[in-house]
Design a protein around this nucleic acid. Structure first.
Lengths: 193, 193, 193, 193
DNA sequence: CATGAATGAGAGTTCATTCAT
DNA sequence: GATGAATGAACTCTCATTCAT
């Protein structure tokens, strides 16, 4: 596959990402992608055999492009600062109107069980757990946090975020409600607001 | 609508519930329901024009049939006992293999925004929030729990459960992991394990 | 399947037979059949999932409808008369312009290996072998024929006919050439022309 | 067309021959040939515009390469020996598993009527008829054979072989069955077995 | 009410053929 | 000459929906 092909593939991925963001995963047909990309029917099939394959590449592309929030951490940030930053970044992600793939992610995972290599969400989840766990440990050592089981706390935070994400897609969630949960987490870790 | 019609409608709902449990919401076609019910194509259309309408009735039917966990509460149960009971009931619901409609619920809500009257999940969520909030208040009063903001705590618990539900459907979650979260919640409320 | 469905199915078979006769087996698409039958796309699929299934039914229908040449045998016919009659019937079949399915038969059998139950040609071939073999035996007994191995002779005749059939479809064969082979067969059996 | 082009053309023909032997004529697409040859799509079109054109060249190539069975004839061979040799060579051809193009030949001729110049099979058939006819005449003269009409006998033998070829492709034929027909032919010519 | 045959829109997929490089 | 990406026509197949009975 030549340079040009790689560019075209990336173009398809980028356009498809928008389509998936708008329509979710299950509603998107190959035809939808073809039309959004303004290419021919056969043209898409040169690169992807199904929306499933395409979506996997969309996920991978997003994972790579995903802004590294660690770059936002200032040098003198405390553990609580960093945790707060993380929660706020996740909030932004959750509430963003454009290119929000959350719904598509869920629909995809309900239908398909990606191979370990393709399981982008799992990797992200695991790395977040590790990161948050470590962060809490550091916070406990520095006296910022009180927490008997940092790992459980990390899972707690991740499940909580997950729950707010899905609730946003189903019943709806307000920005304030999210903020109150941030507060609640910090309080649970013994941080004075 | 005669008695017989009502019975037939309920029959369709019951069979459809199984179909939705097996296949989710988006994958189910009117044809699937017709075949599972062993009725005629036209016959189903006499009662339902779409899977959306049918699913709403399935949800309502489930809500009515939903076991009231309050009946399980013993007379001398403490607030912590009741909360634990609730979390364990939710766990059962999450891990049950048969007739588990969770996936279908999510897929439905991703696609459709039910009217207030039809919004079964919203009602359930709100009533659970109220119940848990009240419970925590009682626990705080009785000295069982320590909690500054019972409402936030209630939301926290509900979002957490929600997060575990979706994780169960996507990345998977172990029974132990759920149990550790129960423990974590109780500890956060100041209950000694 | 009701009476009407059976009629419709037969209608499709009859129309398809003409299509196969004109175009052969491999060239015929479901679309061709749909258009020839003047029914809807989905309509055909109610009855047949593929041209293969359809062709099997065409073959069965032909086998049933196939004129029984035995009805043409006069009471005082000798073995040689009957054999001649058979060869002339086969000739008619070979040279007929309309509804000649020979090409389609070959193309079908090149591609598909029908189950024993669906193997119409095999049944026909075997029954012809049996019939011709018996006929020659009778002819030998009555002194009409000279033949040491009637079964080999029967196979010889059937393979010969088969060869002329395919040659008719490939290189072409003249009516005279066929007639000369009839003569040759009879001479080989010791019949004076 | 340069030397290199001629070589490439022959390469394509040789690879295509294998493809046609495996898949028949009708099932082979230009894509199949391209992939088997491991050349580019456009590259094939430089040499051939269709599988029909390609197949004609495959046939010609086969005709040229076709082993001349006359080289196998020993100096003291009788007419019967030579006829037997011919029938055994044809048998080998019929039963060979590899590179057997029989099916492809039939499918091609069903679909296309090659020009006289391209009609490889016709030439082969005619030359065989001539050869066998001559052979029988010689046999009759030498007293080996009894035959009133050598030409009819020659056609008889060719049609018979043709019939066994197609039967091999449709209903199947056993090696023994072929052998019995060889015997039958020789007996018909008055040769004592 | 109930049936199920029939329709036709629409998605999926493949490949012959072209053409810029 | 050679490449292979791109196009678009053609076919397959499925279902939502209707309607005569």
């Amino acid at each position: 596959m030549g340079d040009k092909s790689i560019q075209k593939k990336q173009y398809i991925i980028d356009v498809a990402a928008k389509v998936f963001a708008e329509m979710g995963y299950k509603n998107v047909t190959m035809k939808d992608v073809v039309e959004a990309c303004e290419i021919s029917r056969g043209g898409l099939y040169l690169y992807y055999e199904s929306t499933a394959q395409l979506f996997i590449d969309v996920m991978k592309s997003q994972a790579e492009a995903g802004g590294d929030f660690t770059s936002l951490i200032s040098d003198d940030a405390t553990a609580a600062d960093i945790l707060l930053l993380f929660l706020q970044e996740e909030k932004k992600e959750l509430f963003k109107k454009k290119n929000n793939l959350n719904r598509a992610y869920y629909e995809f995972y309900f239908d398909e069980k990606p191979s370990k290599a393709d399981n982008v969400l799992k990797k992200k989840f695991d790395s977040n757990i590790k990161m948050i766990g470590k962060l809490i440990e550091i916070g406990v050592e520095s006296g910022e946090f009180t927490c008997e089981n940092p790992l459980s706390a990390a899972f707690n935070i991740m499940y909580l975020i997950e729950g707010m994400k899905t609730t946003a897609l189903t019943l709806g969630i307000s920005s304030d409600s999210y903020d109150r949960q941030i507060l609640y987490i910090l309080e649970s870790l013994g941080v004075e607001a």
